[in-house]
């Protein structure tokens, strides 16, 4: 599966095996068909998102590093709740995910 992300570059992740169950979710307003086994992090990677948030101290883009809840680099906004670890949250139908592009977004909440 080749998909274009917001910046027009090609996704750098794919699946080696087809999905049996799919769910429809929204990533930055775009409709995405995800696997029922996905976490928010795996589905964003396949959808072509690499930068999930901007570091709150430096403003640099960051993406998932450990995928197991340790590094806190994959923070996204899910259904309006900011700074959630994308690697720990399973996708659910109709879920609305926003990557966190603003430097201070989510801070102090």
């Amino acid at each position: 599966m080749v998909m274009k992300n917001d910046t027009g570059t090609t996704a750098t992740f794919k699946r080696f095996s087809p999905c049996n169950n799919t769910v429809t979710i929204f990533v930055n307003g775009r409709e995405i068909v995800a696997s029922g086994r996905d976490t928010v992090a795996t589905c964003l990677l396949v959808a072509g998102e690499l930068a999930f948030q901007y570091n709150k101290a430096s403003g640099e883009p960051r993406g998932p590093y450990c995928m197991m809840g340790v590094c806190f680099e994959c923070l996204v906004t899910i259904d309006g709740v900011p700074d959630l670890q994308a690697c720990l949250v399973p996708v659910e139908p109709g879920m609305r995910i926003e990557t966190q592009k603003g430097v201070l977004q989510g801070r102090d909440t």
Binding site: T12, F13, K14, C19, T42, L45, V46, M67
Partner: peptide, 13 residues
């Protein structure tokens, strides 16, 4: 490995 186990996700590039 986690991406592959969780949802069969691997790099394509």
């Amino acid at each position: 490995q986690i991406a592959a186990k969780q949802a069969s996700v691997i790099p394509s590039g």
